[in-house]
Design a protein around this nucleic acid. Structure first.
Lengths: 203, 203
DNA sequence: CAAATATTAGAACCTGGTACTAAAATAAAG
DNA sequence: CTTTATTTTAGTACCAGGTTCTAATATTTG
C-alpha cells in the first residue's frame, strides 16, 4: 500500500488514512453529485484510492461513467428544450371549449416555491391562470390587457392547482374579451382572477 | 470510388450522385442540427461519402465531435438548472431600499415570447413585477395577496424591462403592504400594477 | 494535357473508460 | 496466531469515437 501512516497504517490509528468503504461510497456519491463532470482519475486524487477501486465503487453504486453521465444530461436538456419550446401554456390543458371555457392542471414542484416556506410563488399561479385565459380565446393573437387578481390562500409544494376559465365576452367592445379564472386545490378556491384579453378579431 | 453510376459517375450525369461540397456542408449542418447525437459513421451513410470527408467537413465548418457536442449540451443544461434553482427573483434587482423602493431589470428572451408574434407572454412581465414587489418587503415571509394590473403595451423580444416598485404602506392594516410597480421599456411605460402584499410582521 | 482541388485510405495515437485475471493487503473468524 | 474472506491494487486487452498526419487517388478546372 502507498498511503496511510508510516508503518503502512494498520487499522485507522493514523489521522490521514483511507475512509471505510461505506464512507468512501458516500463521499463518492457526494463528489459526483457536486461535479458530474469529474473523471475517475480526478476522483483517485480526492479519495486517495486506486482507479480500480473507484471503478468498482461506481459499479456497486450503479453510477455510469463520465461519458454516459454527460450523454444523459445532454439528452435530458435536449428533451427539455424541445418540450419547453412547445410549452405554450403553463399547466396541462385538459379541457378546452374555445371562446367558452377551459380547464388546466398544474402541479406545484420544487422550482415553483419559496425554498424557505415551500409556498408557491404568486407568479406561477398567475401564469397558469393567464396562460389558460389566453388559450381559451379562439384567435390568432390574444394578449392580456389587464387583470384583477386575488390570492385567496397559499398554495403549497405538491398541491395540484385546477384552473377553470370562463369567457364572458364584453358586448360593447369587439376587440376585447373578459375571462374569469378560478383556481382550486381540491375543493378549495385558492385564486381568482378577472382578465381582460385583447383579441385580434376582424383585423 | 464506390458510389455513383455504373461507369463510376463522371460529372453529375447520373441521378444518384454525390452532392457538391457546398450542398453537402448545408446538409451536414442540417443533419447535426436535427440530431446532435449522430456519429460520423452514421453520417457517412446519410451523405454517401467517406468518414474522412465527414471529418474534413466538420473541421471546415467548425463543428466539434459528438462527445464534445454532448459535453457542451450537458454543461449548458447543468448551468441552466443551477441558475434556475438560484433564481429567487425573475429579473436582476439592481437597487433595493427595503420597505421603500426597488428596481429590477429583465430582458425578454426567446423563451419568454409567443413564437408566432415575438411578443412577451404576460405572465413574465407580471412575474418580474411580482418578484420585485415581494423582494422589496422587509419581512421573513411576504406573499402576494391580490393585485390589479394593466398591460399598457406589448413588450417585444429583446426589449429590456425596467421595473420600479414603491412601497405605500397601508396605515390601517398592519399585516398588509401596498406596493406599486411600474415597468418601462426605455421611457415608455408598458406595465402598471398595484400589489397588496401579505407580510408576517410581529409574528 | 497539367495543375489545382476534393476525396479517400490507412496508420499511429488519445481519452475515458469496460472486462477480465491475478496478486497483494487488510479484516474477520476460528 | 493461523486460516479464510473481503477489499484493494495492478496490469492487460479491448472499445468507441474520435484527432493528426501522410499519402495516394479522383475529379475538376485552366
Amino acid at each position: 500500500m502507498k498511503n496511510g501512516g508510516f508503518h503502512s497504517g494498520r487499522r485507522s490509528c493514523f489521522v490521514i488514512d483511507r475512509l471505510s468503504k461505506k464512507d468512501r461510497h458516500q463521499r463518492l456519491i457526494q463528489l459526483i453529485d457536486e461535479n458530474p463532470f469529474v473523471t475517475d482519475r480526478e476522483l483517485t486524487r480526492q479519495l486517495k484510492v486506486s482507479i480500480q477501486t473507484i471503478r468498482l465503487d461506481r459499479m456497486e453504486l450503479g453510477i455510469p461513467e463520465l461519458r454516459e453521465r454527460m450523454k444523459q444530461m445532454a439528452e435530458h436538456s435536449y428533451d427539455q428544450v424541445r418540450s419547453l419550446s412547445l410549452e405554450e401554456v403553463i399547466g396541462d390543458v385538459v379541457d378546452l371549449q374555445l371562446d367558452k371555457s377551459g380547464i388546466s392542471i398544474f402541479e406545484i414542484r420544487e422550482e415553483h416555491v419559496f425554498s424557505k416556506t415551500r409556498i408557491a410563488r404568486g407568479h406561477y399561479v398567475f401564469a397558469q391562470a393567464n396562460s389558460l385565459a389566453v388559450a381559451v380565446i379562439n384567435d390568432e393573437i390574444a394578449l392580456t390587457s389587464s387583470a384583477d387578481i386575488r390570492f385567496l390562500r397559499q398554495v403549497h409544494l405538491g398541491e395540484k392547482c385546477i384552473a377553470k376559465a370562463y369567457v364572458r365576452s364584453i358586448p360593447g367592445q369587439k376587440g376585447k374579451a373578459k375571462v374569469e379564472v378560478f383556481t382550486y386545490v381540491a375543493d378549495e378556491m385558492v385564486f381568482q382572477g378577472n382578465f381582460v384579453i385583447y383579441r385580434s378579431t376582424g383585423e
